[in-house]
Computed example of a mutant assay.
Amino acid sequence: MNRQPIGVFDSGIGGLSVLQALQAALPLEHFVYLDDSLHAPYGERDDAHVVDRSRAITAYLRQTHGIKALVIACNTATMAAVALLRAEHPDLPIVGVEPGLKPAAAASHTKRVGVIGTRGTVTSAKFNALRLGLQEQAEFIVQPCDGLADAISRSVETQDDLKVIALCAEYTCAMGRFGLNSGDIDTLVLGCTHYVFAQAHLARLVGPQVRILSTGEPVARRTQFLLEQAGALNRTGPGRVALITTGDPAVLQAAARRWLGFATDDAVRWVV
């Protein structure tokens, strides 16, 4: 079992940011990354669609690739489906991602925290429960970013970030003032794994003093902990990565080369 891969999936290429953190923490492990771009964007679809896709992908990764753990590298899918998947697969360690509101509240000095995410994530019941549970620790300025995840994905094909930059500017401007003074937003939470690949643009817009938090490293630590508990860590590497997509393999290949430095043309198309 130790040499079985870890499954990672997202509605597109954004989950590559989580895969990057997982590889850094677990360099001996094998991974299967599945990009469900044919059925994206999850963040602008209803919960039933996201749950159906999450169940189908989990079944495929278990039956075809024999995964020993699953990482849901998508905030929207985590919010909609993680509890159901854990109930249906009690023998499978499952790690989800969620916006880092708690560490952001703890880190903020002005106690005004910005959160950007897909509409599906920031309007979900789970997200609102998380936010309400922390409302005495900080004020959260929440901004749904329609179209941003899709624009980041498309920038791989076009090699043009102008649309990404424009949307980042529009949404950060709508949130108010960023900085370290009283009333400023001094911490920005990335509530979508795609947004990590726009972090440089966001940092220029909000300023160098604003802390930007993503979820890749905490997810990697949690995955490592669960595998250690199960005695399922691979000790004999080197680790390998298989790339699978329901969309265009060339787009996934290009994203892996651009953002992860992969020298590969081995993405496989899977349709279901």
Results as ranks from 00 to 15, higher is better:
133 G>V: 04
119 R>F: 13
92 L>V: 07
111 K>S: 02
254 A>I: 02
153 S>R: 15
19 L>Q: 04
62 R>P: 03
113 V>M: 01
250 A>R: 10
59 A>P: 00
190 L>C: 04
170 E>K: 15
110 T>R: 05
81 A>S: 13
2 N>A: 14
217 E>R: 14
190 L>Y: 03
126 K>R: 15
142 V>Q: 00
264 T>C: 08
251 V>E: 14
178 F>Y: 13
142 V>A: 08
239 G>I: 06
176 G>P: 03
248 D>W: 10
64 T>H: 10
190 L>W: 09
19 L>A: 01
214 S>R: 07
14 G>L: 08
199 Q>F: 11
15 G>N: 01
122 V>D: 14
219 V>C: 09
175 M>S: 00
268 V>R: 13
144 P>F: 11
39 H>C: 03
246 T>C: 10
156 V>N: 03
215 T>G: 10
262 F>D: 01
238 P>D: 04
249 P>V: 06
157 E>Y: 11
265 D>E: 15
97 V>C: 13
199 Q>N: 02
169 A>R: 13
194 H>S: 03
82 V>H: 11
108 S>Q: 06
170 E>M: 14
88 E>T: 08
27 P>E: 09
199 Q>P: 14
127 F>I: 07
127 F>S: 01
140 F>T: 00
139 E>L: 02
94 I>G: 07
257 R>S: 08
227 L>F: 09
202 L>P: 03
48 A>E: 11
219 V>S: 07
227 L>Q: 01
232 A>N: 11
139 E>F: 12
202 L>Q: 00
78 T>H: 08
63 Q>G: 11
142 V>D: 06
189 V>Y: 08
155 S>T: 13
63 Q>S: 15
205 L>D: 03
204 R>S: 08
148 L>C: 09
177 R>L: 06
50 V>Y: 05
163 K>A: 15
218 P>H: 05
80 A>F: 00
30 H>E: 06
251 V>H: 12
228 E>P: 09
89 H>V: 00
57 I>H: 07
226 L>K: 05
174 A>I: 02
94 I>H: 05
152 I>C: 12
86 R>W: 05
110 T>A: 06
237 G>L: 14
221 R>K: 14
157 E>H: 14
220 A>W: 00
226 L>W: 00
42 Y>L: 03
91 D>N: 07
150 D>W: 14
203 A>G: 12
11 S>E: 09
43 G>C: 09
173 C>Y: 11
235 R>H: 15
123 T>R: 02
223 T>W: 06
201 H>G: 04
137 Q>E: 13
8 V>K: 02
237 G>Q: 14
260 L>C: 03
204 R>T: 05
175 M>L: 00
46 D>I: 13
205 L>H: 02
146 D>S: 15
97 V>K: 05
14 G>T: 11
221 R>M: 14
174 A>L: 03
67 I>M: 15
148 L>S: 00
26 L>N: 01
121 T>K: 10
174 A>Q: 12
116 I>F: 08
11 S>C: 07
77 A>L: 07
271 V>T: 14
6 I>E: 10
101 L>N: 01
50 V>P: 04
74 C>D: 10
205 L>A: 01
49 H>S: 01
80 A>N: 07
213 L>H: 05
85 L>C: 04
52 D>R: 12
20 Q>T: 04
226 L>I: 10
201 H>S: 11
176 G>D: 07
131 R>P: 01
242 A>L: 15
